[in-house]
Amino acid sequence: MPSEYLPILIFIIIATAFGLGALLLGMIFRPKKPYSEKLMPYESGITPVGEPRYRFSVRFYLVAMIFLVFDVEAIFIYPWAIVFDDIGTYGFIGMVIFIIIILIGYIFDWKKESFQWD
């Protein structure tokens, strides 16, 4: 079994080495003449005002939290889908109940306007 996963490990190493290697190699050839205007954060040519990491909409947190719930749900559905032939009607009813429970939370989120961006 582990031998099937060996190519992935090697691929990860090669892909990372490709990125880092190309950057290191490029260091020899590319010019390096920085000055303070060049190193300023880009704001359409205007001197940056204030802190760049200012407060942002709480909706981004909400999306992240709802994502967690739904992603975990997806992870539960995958193995169910794979063994669907073996578990038949019994498994199907179980999944219907599971999805209904998730749907209650989903409708709650909808009514609380978690998906409303304006």
Binding site: G26, F29, R30, L39, M40
Partner: peptide, 10 residues
Amino acid sequence: FFKEDLIPEK
């Protein structure tokens, strides 16, 4: 590949 690689100060 031959362009300057800028890293913003901050």
